[in-house]
Amino acid sequence: MTAAIFSHDSRSSAAIGAAAHNRSKALRKILTYAALWIAFVWAVFPFYWMIATSLRAKDEIFQRPPSLVPHTVTIQNYIDLLVGAQFWRFAMNSLLLTASVTLVSVLISVTAGYAMARHRFKGSVVLPLFMLYGQMFPPVLLLIPFYAQLRLLGWLDSLWGLIPVYLSYMLPLCVWLMRGFFSQVPHSLEDAARMDGCTRWQAFWKVILPMAKPGIVAVATWVMIHSWNEFLYASTFILSEKNRTLPLGLSGLIGQYTTDWGVLMAGGVITALPILLVFFFLQKHLVSGVGGGAVKG
């Protein structure tokens, strides 16, 4: 009812104001671009500010008032950061941890996701939902049991101890996403391979896996990014300085009284860099993969 009234209204006004139409269209375009620019600046500015701070000389960082554009550009902060052995140690720890967690979760979620998408068995309907629930558990509820367990096993303050902890919040969603990707691979392909005499395993390994590669890449990237960035568990379970990951190392640069923001921001840029690179190379996979998986299920 209401729609009919609106349509009648605007149609008559459109006929009258045909000349005004073009002008309002141009105005709308200008407004759209203005809004886009505002959003863009708002989104990018903190990132710009991090880079700008990392390139400033120490005395300029604490100059008041701060200037939007650095007067002089120096890489001194990066040198200060990178000559210390610590930073490399943190980076190696992060790399090792991220690689292990990614490898384990991809290997395990590939087979599970495939089986859930393709086979009917007891639990093939319930299990995926169970996985999704597993993802939603609040980390704070898991923290304390993990702490007690790791203590018991003597894995507190160990990078290896973090692997099962990270799996707890990676694996369920990985399985869920993988199941989504595998259900998009057409059945007929597998049937054809089986007709040609492949065993189930061969059909899975040689035909289905290559088809599902974009999904696997997306899931692997998702795990990589999240393990690389993880802070809560690492900061609770890692006690000694030599076992810190990059995010921990960064937060450790915050001093009680003074903080060397130049070096800290340089560290931030270097920590963010691998993620940004991964993201912009794989943007297409990621956006459709994670976004689609979460929405479509």
Binding site: M50, N229, F231, G268
Partner: peptide, 10 residues
């Protein structure tokens, strides 16, 4: 895309 710890500290 920016890692959460990096964003918060910035």
């Amino acid at each position: 895309v920016v890692p959460s710890v990096v964003a918060v500290l910035t």
